[in-house]
Design a protein around this nucleic acid. Structure first.
Length: 986
DNA sequence: ACAGAAGCTTA
DNA sequence: GTAAGCTTCTGTT
């Protein structure tokens, strides 16, 4: 073996267990021999031997070996008799596969290596050392953490199941320590599967932290007395011996006396007939065919070979090391497109104007600066805070981030505040961290913190100071939290919204972590690394102050640096007014809407839930009666099998995963043919959907403090400029069916109040008429005529009077189709007509309204040229894939860009209405409060006596919303109604 | 435990 | 044919 060679070492034993559990059961057809792990193994080896180039393994092997455990008795049992003692026997149908995989290895012409007294891992360690000494590189094919100690400059790992490399960065990401400290980490944490004791109560996180602090295990044990936490110090001192023996157990032996030398591991071409013989025996037809093609062997010429199947009582199955490696999240490759050359049209070539230069300069500075946690500190007394506030006043600008206990700003307790004035430096002010040793009372407040009240009293003048700009990522959250403490933070810039205005539609989100990676090339610490996730999550109050400081200060620091890079880009791209008129002013408006919430009647929901439950139970019994067994109706898989398998209904289409489709559309069609079961399934789905998503879920969102439901609006979640609503989503409350509408009756006005609903009529079609300048449509809207009827009349030359409803329906579908970026395929589906008929409709439509064809072509050409489209207010929506070579990807982007101009303009219009609404109501001395937005509808709550006065004000603001920025050539029309509940008001 | 698919709700 | 979010089931290449 020489320099440049590459050795692949497959952890055969580890692979068997992992493949067995990960792969679906598979049995040889002829006799039921279980073979799933064998097939997985063969596929993996074939891929690596034949086609490593097309995997993420990165290199092509020159040497190859598969390593197995020999038996459970190794030198480790001598060292520590309990080692691997509580290992249970492997599953029955895995046992015969141990031997088969060894035979598969031989069939592949690969060395099959095992050694009495040593584990596979020791052999792997030995070969990788020898290879390194020979100047060659090694890839260990495994994801077992026990092998990670081997990772280094010349040794990598590769997880064949996830097609993912594991190098030094991946080890650090997963375990928090570099590979050379894995031994010490495992010595501390132990391993319950292998019965390595470790130190009780020390898990990977604590171990990594201790090793970070003390360097290595010996350092830690020598200086254990310095550990601050009482309990931790004691257990480590008491269990020092266990840690030492554990270290011996997990340390891999790299001087195993091997029979085969490196040169015996040279990779040979596969012997086609020999391998095919084995694969044929196993009845792996696909792989057999593939191997035959690659080795130019005629399958028919090869006889199935004999294999030996070991029986459970003779196999050395129990001896094989279990491989249940912890799952690994694929690491997103670091990406920094800030340095990329500008795309054609989109980013204009570097200009001489100040904003571009400033932006470029800031980017350079940010890229050069390393984020250094040691420049972050905690402020823990009032005097220091006062001094800091004085500096911030002087600076006139300050980034901040509130740390709380909940992602719901209406429930969050404020735990601390981080702030930054100078890039690279930041402070954290802890207010309410607790000792976190977790009894139900939550532990006591830690010392040396400025109490919330006192700290906020000091900070309030700064946060409300009109001459100090506050920079925040996602300001709406902080506004809600701070306003609950009586602080009105202003003025502000929001880095999330600046990014949204600049880059809506480009890949990547607008959250702090994504922006930091994109612009600063730095991945900030994740909150879940401090506070955990899922059911093990702790409140931020329980995170210790030191770690909280590093995390929180970094958040503020990054917000500041992002602002420095992004803000000048707004001016450079002419997007300042979009940000200042459509985004930033909406933040406090939405914050107030969220804070107000809406009243939801629990009793109505609970009554409805009962009715739905009864209804669903009845339909369920009827379904069971027809089907003859109690299947899970909620499982599309089971349903498909029953409908199209057992009952033999004419199955329509399959979904992309090969399942029978059981969509409502398809079931409706079957019902129309006279089948009774599909109808019942559709009914059952409606009832259970209403129950689970609405009547059962909504009461859980009633805030115990306010007795109202507070949705959360996302300003930067959609590509088009629409808002989105979540937790709960109040933008998809049912309205189409009578059953569903009952849910809306539960949304009620306070006593003595009414709900007012005001919605734009046909806003997107009006926008279309305006931007595409279609005379007939403009005229129809000016006349207040029925737009779909006019369209039908134009297309089919029929009078509007006495028009058959079917004719109007088709015209309506075409109008909507235009808004969605029409295709014959889509229209045909919508109207259940043949594709050529739909094509004919579209052709005719374009003949009658040539302006719309022009509009569509112009939009596509513009998007192709610039990579984005704009709304009439200048909002940009990017389509980076508009020039894709894949026709369906390209067509999708074309339709989306056509829709985005219309949907986005409509979204801008209602945003403008919302921004102006409060002042208009104020000026008219009306007390109405805006509660909800549903894309083209606003819902208000107002005292009964003011209803009549409120409606004209609301209507006027909404209808005139485009003014004075844009004067539309088509009038906007708003319908408004008041009632006691949302159903009647709508 | 978590992610993705399927399905359903809205404008 | 556009834009979203939530629930349930399923599988863990």
């Amino acid at each position: 073996m020489k320099k440049g060679d590459h050795l692949f070492l497959v952890d055969g034993s580890g692979y068997i267990f992992r493949a067995y559990h990960a792969l679906p059961p598979l049995n040889r057809k002829s006799d039921g021999l279980p073979t799933n792990a064998v097939l997985g193994f063969c596929n993996m080896v074939w891929k690596l031997v034949q086609d490593a180039r097309n995997t993420n393994v990165g290199v092509v092997p020159t040497h190859f070996a598969v390593i197995f455990d020999y038996s459970s008795k190794t030198f480790r049992s001598e060292l520590y008799p309990e080692y691997k003692a509580n290992r249970s026997a492997p599953p029955e149908d895995l046992i015969p596969q141990f031997g088969l995989i060894r035979q598969a290895t031989v069939a592949f012409n690969l060395p099959c290596i095992e050694m009495e007294g040593f584990e596979a891992d020791d052999i792997i360690a030995t070969y990788s050392r020898l290879a390194c000494e020979a100047g060659a590189d090694t890839t260990v094919i495994s994801s077992d953490k026990d092998l990670m100690q081997l990772v280094g400059p010349t040794v990598g790992m590769y997880d064949p199941m996830k097609d993912r490399q594991i190098g030094i960065p991946e080890v650090i990401e997963k375990w928090g320590v570099p590979p050379e400290k894995m031994i010490d980490l495992q010595a501390l944490t132990g391993d319950s599967v292998d019965n390595v004791p470790g130190v009780p109560g020390i898990g990977p996180k604590t171990a990594a932290q201790l090793l970070e602090q003390f360097g290595d295990l010996d350092g830690l044990l020598a200086r254990a007395g310095e550990i601050k936490q009482d309990k931790r110090r004691e257990t480590i001192i008491a269990n020092a011996d266990k840690a030492r023996i554990s270290r011996e157990l997990v340390t891999l032996k790299n001087d195993v006396p091997l029979k085969e030398g490196l040169d015996d591991l040279v990779l040979h071409e596969p012997d086609g007939p020999k391998l095919i013989g084995f694969l044929k025996t196993m009845e792996f037809t696909t792989l057999t065919r593939r191997v035959a093609e690659a080795t130019a062997t005629e399958i028919g010429d090869v006889q199935a070979s004999a294999v030996t199947v070991e029986r459970a009582d003779t196999a050395h199955g129990p001896d094989v090391g279990a491989g249940a490696p912890p799952s690994q999240r694929p690491a997103a490759p670091a990406r920094n497109d800030a340095a990329k050359p500008p795309t054609r049209g989109e980013d204009a070539p570097p200009q001489g104007d100040t904003p571009s230069l400033l932006s470029a300069l800031r980017l350079e500075q940010a890229a050069a600066r390393k984020i250094d946690p040691s420049a972050y500190s905690a402020i823990r007394d009032a005097a220091a805070l006062k001094a800091w506030i004085a500096q911030a006043r002087e600076a006139g600008i300050l980034a901040l981030d509130a740390e709380t206990t909940s992602s719901d700003p209406m429930q969050a307790d404020l735990i601390g505040l981080s702030m930054a004035i100078t890039p690279g430096r930041a402070i954290y002010v802890p207010f309410a961290h607790t000792s976190g040793n977790g009894d139900l009372l939550g532990g006591g407040l830690l010392e040396n913190q400025i109490p919330v009240r006192e700290a906020l009293a000091l900070l309030k003048p700064l946060l409300e100071d009109r001459s100090v700009l506050k920079i925040v990522q996602d300001m709406k959250y902080d506004i809600v939290v701070m306003s609950r403490h009586g602080i009105d933070v202003a003025p502000f810039d929001d880095t999330m919204l600046i990014s949204y205005v600049l880059d809506a539609g480009t890949s990547g989100g607008h959250d702090l972590a994504s922006l930091s990676e994109k612009w600063l090339g730095h991945a900030p610490a994740a909150k879940k690394e401090l506070a955990g996730s899922g059911k093990n999550a702790i409140g931020f109050d329980q995170v210790d102050i030191e770690r909280a400081t590093t995390y929180a200060a970094e958040q503020a620091d990054i917000a500041l640096q992002l602002w420095q890079v992004l803000k000048p880009r707004l001016a450079a791209k002419g997007l300042v007014s979009v940000y200042e008129r459509l985004e930033r002013p909406l933040v406090p408006v939405l914050a107030r809407m969220e804070q107000r919430g809406i009243s939801v009647d629990r009793q109505i929901l609970s009554r409805l839930s009962g009715e739905l439950a009864q209804g669903a139970a009845r339909v369920e019994e009827e379904i069971y009666g027809i089907v003859g067994e109690r299947i899970n109706i909620g499982s599309p898989k089971q349903l498909g099998d029953i409908l199209f398998g057992k009952m033999g209904l004419p199955g329509g289409s399959k979904t992309k995963t090969g399942q029978w489709s059981t969509s409502a559309q398809l079931l409706e069609d079957l019902a129309a043919e006279g089948h009774e079961l599909p109808r019942k399934i559709v009914d059952w789905r409606q009832l259970t959907k209403l129950k689970s998503t609405y009547t059962d879920a909504l009461p859980g969102f009633i805030n115990p403090g306010t007795n109202r439901v507070h949705t959360s609006y996302a300003l930067a979640a959609t590509t088009t400029g629409r808002l989105s609503s979540s937790d709960p989503n109040l933008q998809n409350i049912p309205v189409r069916t009578a059953e569903g509408r009952k849910i809306r009756t539960a949304f009620i006005a306070e006593k003595g109040h009414k709900l007012v609903s005001a919605d734009y009529s046909q806003i997107e079609l009006r926008v279309l008429a305006h931007v595409a300048e279609i005379p007939q449509l403009k005229q129809a809207f000016a006349d207040g005529a029925d737009i779909h009827a006019i369209t039908a009349s134009e297309m089919f030359n029929v009078p509007v009077e006495g028009m058959p409803s079917e004719v109007r329906r088709r015209a309506k579908a075409i109008n909507f189709g235009i808004i969605y970026g029409i295709s014959a395929f889509g229209l045909a589906n919508q109207l259940s007509i043949p594709r050529d008929e739909a094509s004919a409709y579209i052709k005719r439509y374009f003949e009658r309204f040539p302006g719309i064809r022009d509009y569509i072509e112009e939009t596509k050409a513009y998007a192709r040229e610039y990579g984005f489209v704009e709304t009439i207010f200048g909002r940009r929506i990017h389509y980076p894939e508009i020039r894709a070579s894949n026709p369906s990807v390209r067509a999708f982007n074309e339709r989306a860009s056509i829709n985005a101009r219309l949907q986005g303009t409509a979204a801008d219009i209602i945003r403008r209405a919302m921004v102006h609404m409060e002042e208009a109501l104020d000026k008219a001395k009306l007390s109405a409060r805006m509660l909800l937005q549903v894309h083209d509808e606003l819902i208000f709550e107002t005292v009964e006596a003011e209803v009549e006065a409120t409606i004209p004000v609301v209507r006027s603001v909404m209808e005139n919303a485009p003014m004075p920025a844009v004067s539309m050539s088509v009038p906007l029309h708003v319908d408004a109604r008041a009632a006691n509940n949302w159903d009647e008001a709508h």
